[in-house]
Design a binder for these strands. Structure first.
Length: 297
DNA sequence: GCCCAGGTGAAGC
DNA sequence: GCTTCACATGGG
């Protein structure tokens, strides 16, 4: 017998909520002190972590918490994943800096739409665009007394009805027609995100890349962050910088060669390794400015 | 003012 | 095939 409660504790070691929520895989979590507030599906959630567990609070009594365990991937043996990383100096440094950084298992539509909006935008700006989008077109979700109101991520059907000019007013610029066309394709049933679960990585990636505004990088983000494909390896400007600086200092390496190197070098959890590299690269001025030495140098 | 940001698609060679 | 460019907008 499971009774419904508004709080639940998940045993979890090595879980750094701050690194996880600020590492650019998701854009809506907000910090209040040691607590993080967000919306998963249509549920308000507040989390905080102590040394051996994550404590969750919802707005309404909840009997089945599997949706949250799945989102947070609390059952994942992080140590086993980290052991599959290459034992080179860049990875050791990145893991040492942010051990406890996790990959979430996000809703495919929210993840896809968010990354369509991400192209050549800084993370703070992506957060702002998505906040406007949710506030204007998302449905309000139940919130505990004395907490700020908050909305769910708008559905494809809802966004499909929004005029392009209104989307542009959410500061998304040239990304608006891409988001709109993708929302319509999904809302009208031409594109079925659920079908991707049954496809191998390469086929799922090819399917995603048929959507307007979705190229290799965004497809890999969705495959990694929403579909749990551990080998998906998004290569953005930061990862490009990390790979060049840490693995190919003072050499010209073309993007295709970097992608090929990544697929061969980082192992079965390459996507996880990529997230550590991305966050590590972005969070240090010396690394951003390229003053860090390469692996063997 | 200038360069850049979790890119993509289309046009030009 | 590959390289270059336009596309909005705001942070640093």
């Amino acid at each position: 017998m499971t009774s419904a409660a508004r709080t639940q504790s998940f045993p979890a070691r090595d879980y750094d909520l701050t690194a996880t929520f600020t590492s650019g895989q998701t854009f809506r979590w907000q910090r209040q002190g040691s607590h993080w507030t967000g919306v998963i599906g249509n549920r308000w959630v507040r989390l905080h972590a102590d040394s051996c567990s994550i404590v969750a609070e919802t707005a309404q009594p909840t009997a089945d918490w599997s949706w949250l365990a799945d989102y947070l991937q609390v059952h994942l043996d992080l140590g086993a994943v980290l052991q599959t990383f290459p034992q080179d100096e860049p990875m050791r440094a990145a893991v040492s800096a942010y051990r406890g950084l996790r990959l979430l298992r996000q809703d495919p539509w929210e993840c896809l739409a968010s990354f369509i909006l991400s192209s050549t935008k800084q993370i703070t700006q992506i957060q702002q665009i998505i906040s406007l989008l949710c506030g204007r077109y998302g449905e309000a979700v139940a919130v505990p007394a004395a907490h700020d109101s908050i909305c769910a991520f708008p559905s494809p059907a809802r966004l499909a009805q929004v005029p392009e000019a209104e989307l542009r007013a959410c500061k998304m610029g040239f990304r608006a027609p891409f988001l709109l066309a993708t929302a319509r394709s999904i809302a009208e049933g031409q594109f079925d995100l659920r079908r991707l679960h049954s496809l191998p990585l390469e086929a799922a990636r090819a399917e995603l890349m048929t959507l307007p505004g979705v190229g290799r990088k965004i497809a890999d983000c969705v495959l990694l962050f929403a579909f749990g494909c551990p080998r998906a390896f998004p290569v953005d400007v930061w990862v490009t910088k990390a790979l060049r600086q840490l693995y190919f200092p003072r050499r010209q390496v073309r993007p295709a060669a970097l992608q090929e190197f990544a697929g061969a070098h980082f192992g079965p959890n390459a996507g996880y390794a990529q997230q550590y590299l991305f966050h590590y690269m972005r969070t240090s001025r010396s690394r951003r400015d390229g003053r860090l030495q390469g692996s063997g140098a």
